[in-house]
């Protein structure tokens, strides 16, 4: 038990080492980094989508920077290319899922009728637009920049 706990903790605190480690270590680090990067992407995209209600410091530039840096950190944390690709895939899928959730969940929480899903269409349109033009490309660009950085400093 203590052996496994220490193993998981060491994997999480040394993601670059883990990205070259055993299959279990690679999966654990890719899933953790990917899920957290997806969370950052979805939260920033939500703040961008509801820009009029965002606090003053959370402007478009700040949120775009968050998404970009989260993409770069996927590669910087999961250093091995193979593991980082998996982590970025997890970030993209989890980020898309969470971004859709931010549009749907308010209707469920506030018990607002969606008219059979019809009322969700404008929100989902905005979510998909932000996913295709902001969230995924910015995260991917950050990731590619980090690959170039790692390649240049190798």
């Amino acid at each position: 038990m203590s052996e496994r706990t220490r193993g998981a903790l060491a994997t999480l605190t040394r993601p670059a080492d883990a990205s070259y480690g055993s299959r279990r270590e690679r999966l654990l680090s890719a899933l953790t980094v990917g899920l957290l990067a997806g969370l950052v992407g979805a939260a920033a995209a939500y703040t961008l989508r509801r820009g009029a209600l965002a606090p003053a410091w959370a402007d478009d530039t700040a949120m775009a920077t968050l998404v970009f840096v989260s993409g770069a950190l996927v590669k910087l944390l999961c250093q091995s290319l193979r593991t980082s690709v998996l982590a970025l895939a997890v970030a993209t899928v989890a980020g898309a899922g969470l971004a859709v959730a931010t549009a749907v969940v308010p209707y469920l929480l506030l018990d607002i009728a969606t008219l059979g899903g019809l009322a969700l269409l404008p929100a989902l349109r905005d979510v998909i637009t932000l996913l295709v033009f902001v969230q995924i490309p910015l995260q991917l660009t950050g990731y590619l920049v980090a690959i170039v950085y790692d390649g240049a400093t190798a």
């Binding site: 605190t13 950052v40 939260a43 920033a44 959370a58 949120m63 944390l77």
Partner: peptide
């Protein structure tokens, strides 16, 4: 690795704060 993790944690915290406030 530790420094990068700190940056990542700050990123998660900042986006979380923006999300909660919005």
């Amino acid at each position: 690795q530790r420094a990068l993790l700190v940056v990542f944690a700050a990123l998660v915290a900042a986006s979380g704060a923006a999300f909660v406030s919005t």
